[in-house]
Structures are given as structure tokens and as C-alpha cells.
Design a binder for these strands. Structure first.
Length: 527
RNA sequence: GCGGGUAUAGCUUAGUGGUAAAGCCCUAGCCUUCCAAGCUAGUUAUGUGGGUUCGAUUCCCACUACCCGCUCCA
């Protein structure tokens, strides 16, 4: 992306963030206390939007399918579950930073080295009177010039110089001593610079169960789940045994997960608390690959149904070597966010890995008896795992539009429109009396509101001019507005009596619709 | 985690070492017959904590949050 394009996209993202706050889609968590890094709250409209997304996903993937069952697992997770899944052991990589280049390295992947370590206690510059006291070391191998160590150390200390005119070459090193080291991993193999102490970066939130549990009581340790998938695997046997299922079948779950991200970024895109919509689709081994492709297509169709066109999505076929070791096939479904192309969902063929691991660790039989083939087997699994909040952000980015409109006087202005699909829109219809100081209009509008309210989210508004009310609804993406006027009351004769103006958000076109037809018309549009 | 930037009302922006300004939005009232009309009145702000100072929104430091670039993302 060019600089200009990047700036434009940053500006666009800022406008979207601003609108989300102004209209009550998304707020920063604990804003009045300065905010909580990587956490966000959904305001009234955001809550509606998210509910619409989750409801539609659930309807399509659970309620309308005979072969997928729902689950709602606990967020607090038994530590053994996450030991079995590999999250406790393999999920916490000790990391070091290079003191010179600031590069971050995985401590367990550093090649052990041997050589001579040159230690220093600090550095100074006689002419300017500058000095710094701070221990530092450089490792050089036997055949390297010792001056290389001094040069590297000077470079390191020069970063503390306040006067940038001073050449690193002219500073004096203090307290040089040497030490022979073998098989050390404390130095950066690239440049010999000392590294910071290895630090754990466990991405899971850890807690202790029980009011009296102290931090040292390892048996009381529990975690906030880092993914919803594990409770599905752990409850696999219960679900299968209580529901007379046969392969292939799925278990679906929507719920919060938590990851202590080092670096939350891009608005709500990478949050520490986030919601997932996951399916674990269990199948016979021979069907796994084909089902993965099938699910990919089904998921792409889903995104189209909620208003994200196929051409704004990218499918990444994760190549060999980059997939998790247990996965024979993984697709990422990505969306063109203003800040870049980023993942919305992963569709992964995970083989029998998860159930096998839980079988091993729990010692419980997790085989499934296949009635058709009369054999006991550990089913394979295909996992379409979507990020709910990411999809919300994609819906918002996709919907945001600015349109130049010209009024009768030829004056141009910007109309901001959220073009949500009617299915996802937080408010489905605005109901307005043309004038609020005419009680007959208000009364009729209230009747129309009451007629629609049991079936959809309706917004009643009688303040300000009618045009302003339309624009307010444009900005929150309400697809339809209904206006009750004097014709509704029968002032222009019986033909128009009991009809209203139906105004369309996208085209701004108006049509006349009978109140009696309104409910069914709108229900068809938002289904 | 590193580097850079930013922080004044719901939003967009002024401004000042000594009473913080405007537009939009919003609320109420009047008026108003279909695309942000008009008039009147009104609410709301210097991110947090220190320091310097008689006095700090302004200067300095730290923290927090957000944005950008790296890094990371089982």
C-alpha cells in the first residue's frame, strides 16, 4: 500500500471509529478511568448488530441443521484441559530482546554459542563530560578480533548519548573484563550483543479458584479459555451420547475467549477479550479434506448473506510448513479492512488430534461407535472458527459510505450512510409522524410503531425536521423509514387513507405502502 | 516489547502561564406538509498523577489510552 493510500485508509478508519463512538456502536472499555488496553464495550447499536450476527449464525448453523448441535461451555477452564490441548506447555514461549538491535528472539530457539564474553560497567565521553553506568557484555568467538567486541559495546552505549553529534567511536568504555563461556544462549548470534533475561509470554489469563486459594496453590489454578473449541472436545462424549448422532455431525458454540495479546491493535480487531463462533464438525477420516472445502464454501456464502461481498474476501490456503503440525489443510478467510487484509475466520482440518489428546490425558475412552460401519473410531474434525468481533468490524467497515448529495438549491453535502444489509441492521425501521405538533399524526405513528414492535427493532422519532430524521437513520444504517402524514389520515381521499411513505435508505426513494402490508413487507426484507 | 505521534465538550477544531472559544451534534420550546430549514433558551471539555510556579489546560517528568511503523500472533 502506498503512503498516500495508507494515509487515506487511516483517515477512513478514524472516521469509522468516530462514528462508532458518536452513534453508540463501540466505546472504549472503562473510558472514564483512562481505558483498559485491548478491551471494548458495545453500545446500544453495537449490541443490536452483534446480536443480529450471532442470532443469524446460530440459526443457519444450528437451528436450521439437523446435524449440528449447540453448546455453551464455561469460560473458566480446568487446567488439565489446557495441558492436554497443549496451551499450557507450548503456549508460553520465553522471549528475549537484543539490547543492541531490539530484535525479539525466542529463548528456546537460540543456538548455544561458545566464546569470550567482554563485560563492561559503563561508558563515558571526556570532552563533553557525558557518562553512563550500566553493565553490558558482548560475546565474540575465538577467531574474532577483540576490537569487534569494543565496537559493538560502543554502539550499545551510544544509544544513551544525549548529544547525537558525538561519534560512538570516540566514547570510552569502562571496566572491561573477560570471561570464557561455553554453550551460552544469553547472546544474540547475529551480533554478539547481550540479551535481556528470558521472559515468559503466556497468552492465557490465569486465575485461582476458590476464595481462600493463594497464588502459590497450583491445584487451584484455572484459566480463562483461550478458545471455545476445547469445551466442545471435552464435552464431545456427553453430547454424542445424549443426542443419537451419527457421523458426520457438528457441535457449535458462540462465546467469549481471552488471550493476553502482547500488542492489541487496530481498534477492536485484536482484543484481549473477544467472541468466537466455532463449529467442530466430526467426521470419518476419509471425508475430512472434502468437508474442509465444503465448509469453506459454506462460510463464504454466509459472509455474502450478511452483506460482505465475495470480492472483498480473500481465501488463503495455508501452505505446508505454516499450518499447525496436526492440520492437513487450513484456509484463512480474510477481509480487506482499511488497515490491511486480515483474518476473519479459519477453516482448519484438525484430524483426530484434539480428541486423541484428551483421550490420552483424561484416560477416558472418547471413541465413537459408528453404527454404519460397526467400528469404534476417534472421529476427525473440521473446524470453521470465526471471530465474532472481527466480523462486526468488517460489517461496519463494509457498511460505511459517504455520498455526495445535491439538494434542490444545488448545494452539495456529504451524506454518511451505513449500508448494512437489512438482515444485520441494528434498527430495522424508523417510524415518524410528519409533524409532532399534530396529535392525530403522532397517535397514528404510535399505532404503526406498536404494530411493528413485536416483530423487529423499531425506532420512533418525532423531533426535528423530517429530513434530519432520515439522515440520522442513514448514519446508523436503518434500511427503512416510515412517515405518517395527512394522507394517512385520509385528507386526500380514501385512496391514500391508511397508507404511509416508505423511504429507502440506499436510494432515498419513497413509495406509498398500505399500513396493512407494512409488517409483511418489512419481515420479508429483514429475514 | 521497540521506535515515532497524539490526548481541549458527544464529534471536528481554536486558544492561552491568570474567567477556555467556535461550528456541528444533542435537549426543551415556538414554528414547520417529505431529505441535516428557521428563531429562542439550555447541557457538556483541557486523559491520570507528580513537579516547577503566587497561579499550569499551557512548561517539565512519569503513567494510561489511542494511532502509525516494526515485532508478536500457539
Amino acid at each position: 500500500m502506498s503512503d498516500a493510500a495508507s494515509e487515506k485508509n487511516t483517515a477512513l478508519m478514524e472516521k469509522i471509529v468516530s462514528l462508532c463512538k458518536r452513534r453508540g456502536f463501540i466505546f472504549q472499555s472503562a473510558e472514564i478511568y483512562g481505558g483498559l488496553n485491548g478491551c471494548w464495550d458495545y453500545g446500544p447499536l453495537g449490541a443490536e448488530l452483534k446480536r443480529n450476527l450471532k442470532d443469524y449464525w446460530w440459526r443457519k448453523n444450528v437451528q436450521e441443521r439437523e446435524d449440528i448441535l449447540g453448546l455453551d461451555g464455561s469460560i473458566l477452564t480446568h487446567q488439565d484441559v489446557l495441558k492436554a490441548s497443549g496451551h499450557v506447555g507450548g503456549f508460553s514461549d520465553p522471549m528475549c530482546d537484543c539490547l543492541l538491535s531490539k530484535a525479539r528472539l525466542r529463548a528456546d530457539q537460540i543456538e548455544p554459542q561458545s566464546g569470550t564474553a567482554y563485560h563492561y560497567t559503563g561508558a563515558s565521553h571526556a570532552e563533553s563530560g557525558w557518562s553512563v553506568e550500566r553493565p553490558y557484555s558482548v560475546l565474540i568467538s575465538g577467531n574474532q578480533d577483540e576490537n569487534k567486541a569494543r565496537k559493538t559495546a560502543k554502539q550499545y552505549y551510544s544509544q544513551f548519548l544525549t548529544d547525537k553529534q558525538i561519534s560512538p567511536k570516540t566514547i570510552e568504555l569502562a571496566g572491561e573484563s573477560t570471561e570464557e563461556l561455553t554453550e551460552t544462549t544469553r547472546y544474540n548470534p547475529e551480533n554478539g550483543s547481550l540479551l535481556t533475561e528470558p521472559r515468559e509470554f503466556n497468552l492465557m489469563f490465569k486465575t485461582h479458584m476458590g476464595a481462600s486459594a493463594d497464588d502459590g496453590d497450583e491445584s487451584a489454578v484455572a484459566y480463562l479459555r483461550p478458545e471455545t473449541a476445547q469445551s466442545i472436545f471435552v464435552q464431545f462424549k456427553n453430547v454424542a451420547e445424549t443426542n443419537r448422532v451419527k457421523l458426520p455431525f457438528g457441535i457449535a458454540q458462540i462465546g467469549k475467549s481471552f488471550r493476553n495479546e502482547i500488542n492489541p491493535r487496530n481498534y477492536t480487531f485484536r482484543s484481549r477479550e473477544f467472541e468466537q463462533m466455532e463449529i467442530e464438525f466430526f467426521c470419518r477420516a476419509e471425508d475430512g479434506l472434502a468437508l474442509t472445502d465444503e465448509w469453506l464454501e459454506r462460510r463464504l456464502t454466509f459472509y455474502e448473506e450478511i452483506g460482505i461481498p465475495r470480492e472483498h474476501l480473500h481465501v488463503l490456503d495455508i501452505p505446508d510448513g505454516e499450518r499447525a503440525h496436526y492440520s492437513q489443510k487450513t484456509y484463512d478467510i480474510e477481509y480487506e479492512f482499511p488497515f490491511g487484509i486480515q483474518e476473519l475466520e479459519g477453516v482448519a482440518y484438525r484430524g483426530a488430534y484434539d480428541l486423541t489428546k484428551h483421550k490420552e490425558h483424561s484416560g477416558k475412552p472418547l471413541e465413537f461407535f459408528d453404527d454404519e460401519t460397526k467400528e469404534k473410531l476417534i472421529p476427525h474434525v473440521v473446524e470453521p472458527s470465526a471471530g465474532c468481533d472481527r466480523t462486526i468490524l468488517a460489517l461496519i467497515c463494509e457498511a460505511y459510505d459517504e455520498e455526495t448529495v445535491t439538494d434542490e438549491k444545488g448545494k452539495e453535502e456529504i451524506r454518511t450512510v451505513m449500508r448494512f444489509s437489512p438482515r444485520m441492521a441494528p434498527v430495522k425501521v424508523g417510524v415518524f409522524p410528519l409533524l409532532k405538533n399534530k396529535p392525530e399524526l403522532v397517535e397514528k405513528a404510535r399505532e404503526v410503531q406498536a404494530l411493528l414492535v413485536p416483530h423487529m427493532n423499531v425506532f420512533y422519532d418525532e423531533t426535528a425536521a423530517i429530513g434530519r430524521r432520515y439522515r440520522r437513520q442513514d448514519e446508523i444504517g436503518t434500511p427503512f423509514c416510515v412517515t405518517i402524514d395527512f394522507d394517512t389520515l385520509g385528507e386526500s381521499g380514501d385512496e391514500l387513507k391508511e397508507t404511509v411513505t416508505l423511504r429507502h435508505r440506499d436510494s432515498m426513494k419513497q413509495e406509498r405502502v398500505a399500513i396493512a402490508d407494512l409488517r409483511n413487507f418489512l419481515l420479508d426484507q429483514i429475514a
